[in-house]
Nucleic acid binder design. Structure first.
Lengths: 147, 147
DNA sequence: CGTACTCCTTCAAGTAACTTGAGGTTCAAG
DNA sequence: CTTGAACCTCAAGTTACTTGAAGGAGTACG
């Protein structure tokens, strides 16, 4: 089998994981990644383990988990003593947040849609200050939306 | 008729418009609100015009418009020489962004939903490192999602 | 061995839209 | 005149990075 060890510079690691090089340095700085090994000249080097960890972080971020949640997920993903319900609970919590955001955005979409089409029908091309959008915007949403 | 002039302190204005007092000072600092009149002692005072302008800003922000968009909308809302299609275009642009965000979030919701229910079925209570969520998370989304 | 070129280094500041905190002043009531 | 709430300014914190300046390291070519 092919057990050759890959060594990455920060740039190649960045490409492999799909993040930017400053982001990698930033993750090191805040402790998401361990301090990198260095060449004699002081440049960072990485191996496949680092790539694995970084890829995991990237996935979590893409799923919308915050940095602090990623920290916990990283711990959980290498722990054999902690319970997997913790992981599920974090995912559930995040799912709830996503759903709240979704319903806010759905309401927003409807209202903006209404603004645009009413403007097209009622006042497009007219004087700026008379636009129906300004009147529409003064009417508060039923059910509340937005932060 | 009742033409009594209302005068607000920053705190009462904040309550009336539904924003915080530091936010009002911040809006003044960045030029969204004109420099407030002051008492002899240096405290800010406001009138109904200020309340109107601040309320308008607040509405725009609630609709998710960015500060720079609010600047333009403020201009448009008091302009008689500019065309109302500008307003509609800003709303349309924002609507497009909302829709993009919506489709990202819908995909995210589905995937997170899947994570949680699969964990409940397959591994809830098991060792942290074996959670199916970690395996699921490694599978990239079809169609792409997230930033 | 020089030199050209890319990639790397650190450190500081910028981004959005505010919030929080420290330390001190003004106002209204009693 | 004193108390206490509300106000003032200025600086720093928040999130998750990005951008920029000034200079060093690594590699390929002649």
């Amino acid at each position: 089998m092919n057990l050759h060890i890959r060594v990455f510079t920060i740039g190649t690691l960045a490409k492999a994981a799909g993040v930017s090089t400053p982001t990698i340095r930033y993750y090191e700085e805040i402790g998401l990644l361990p301090p990198a090994h260095r060449t004699a000249g002081g440049q960072r080097t990485y191996d496949d383990d680092d790539l694995g960890r970084l890829t995991f972080i990237k996935q979590c971020r893409d799923f919308g988990f915050g940095i602090d949640q990623v920290r916990v997920l990283l711990d959980l993903s290498i722990s054999d003593s902690r319970d997997c319900t913790e992981t599920r609970d974090i995912a559930q919590l995040h799912l709830n947040e996503v759903r709240e955001k979704l319903s806010e955005l759905r309401l927003l979409e409807q209202r903006l849609e209404g603004f645009v089409s009413r403007c097209n029908v009622a006042c497009a091309g007219g004087p700026g200050q008379d636009c129906v959008i300004f009147k529409d915007m003064s009417a508060p949403a039923k059910g509340g939306c937005c932060g």
